[in-house]
């Protein structure tokens, strides 16, 4: 007679479950429940406190999809993320390459580069708000000294305010990219470069055919994280422009806040939050799929 395998938990397994339980409970209460509630709010009519009132199926979604402002805001969010992440990646890579070269004061330079990342985002944003101030700001003062008599009203004109906000997000995010890329570069074996030099390979070729392939996985992860953070960067825009002038810097995350906590339209805010969730989820899944497919090629 054949004995069926028993599924009794070992003492170690019990201990593991006991240790994991508080964290699992914490995640369920503070992360899964709010996500579930937001999804419910998007399918319900809510009152001014966000309490569910009446099931309306997808009425909230269809109403919002018909609103041109929603599409403008969604498009602006994608543009904001694309520009910011591309610039952060390119500039971060250049800085990482510079910091990877042996020179006197390299450690000090690395320390300096971490400052924007180490500072809190609201403080950085407030600092830049003062820099951009038209009357008393450092930027326009400098531009005036350089002979530019009518410098832009950085936070008052639609295009300039978008540029100004995006620059602050980039400024805050570059150190992270640079340091992650630098860490990746330092893990590449020196032997590869030495062999390449013996074969007469020049510097750009070394970068494109050795460095980039070797740190590809790191670049993937860093840009994925940066995209998620940039798409959800509420602090920078809220502090600098609050989405203005006339909505010119409103992105999905600021619009969610405005609809939810300024206008108390929680259903609309929930719909936008669900759309944001879907966009980021699809993006992350596509990215993860590419990442794991490329895993076999990784060095």
């Amino acid at each position: 007679m054949k004995h069926l395998p028993t599924h009794r938990l070992t003492a170690d397994a019990k201990m593991a479950y006991a240790l994991i339980a508080p964290a699992a409970l914490f995640i369920a209460v503070f992360m899964l429940y709010p996500v579930f509630y937001v999804i419910m709010m998007s399918l319900f009519k809510t009152n001014k406190l966000g309490i569910l009132q009446q099931w309306v199926w997808f009425d909230n979604f269809t109403r919002l999809m018909k609103d041109p402002v929603f599409w403008q805001v969604t498009g602006r969010s994608l543009l904001w993320t694309a520009i910011a992440v591309i610039v952060k990646t390119v500039v971060g890579m250049i800085i990482a390459l510079c910091l990877n070269v042996e020179f006197a004061g390299r450690k000090f330079a690395r320390m300096l580069f971490i400052i924007p990342w180490a500072s809190s985002v609201p403080i950085s944003a407030m600092l830049w708000k003062w820099v951009y101030d038209h009357e008393f700001g450092l930027l326009n003062h400098t531009l005036t000294l350089l002979g530019i008599s009518n410098p832009p009203v950085w936070l008052g004109m639609p295009t300039w305010s978008f540029v100004a906000c995006i620059w602050v997000d980039i400024w805050i995010g570059i150190p992270f990219m640079a340091l992650v890329f630098l860490a990746g570069m330092q893990s590449v074996s020196r032997d590869l470069y030495e062999s390449a030099e013996v074969d007469g390979v020049n510097a750009p070729q070394k970068f494109f055919f050795i460095t980039i392939p070797c740190i590809k996985q790191i670049v993937f992860i860093a840009t994925l994280l940066s995209s998620l953070w940039t798409f959800n960067d509420f602090n920078t825009i809220y502090i600098l422009t609050r989405g203005g002038p006339a909505g010119a810097t409103d992105i999905l995350i600021t619009s969610i806040y405005k609809n939810g906590f300024e206008w108390l339209r929680f259903s609309d805010a929930a719909v936008m939050a669900v759309v944001t969730f879907i966009i980021l989820m699809v993006f992350a899944l596509v990215y993860a799929r590419t990442y794991f497919r490329g895993g076999d090629d990784a060095l």
Binding site: H134, E135, N140, V153, L155, G156
Partner: peptide, 16 residues
């Protein structure tokens, strides 16, 4: 009015 009026809220404009 101040040249940068478009970037000034009430609280930011009064100090002028």
């Amino acid at each position: 009015v101040p040249a940068g009026y478009l970037s000034q809220t009430r609280m930011e404009s009064h100090p002028v």
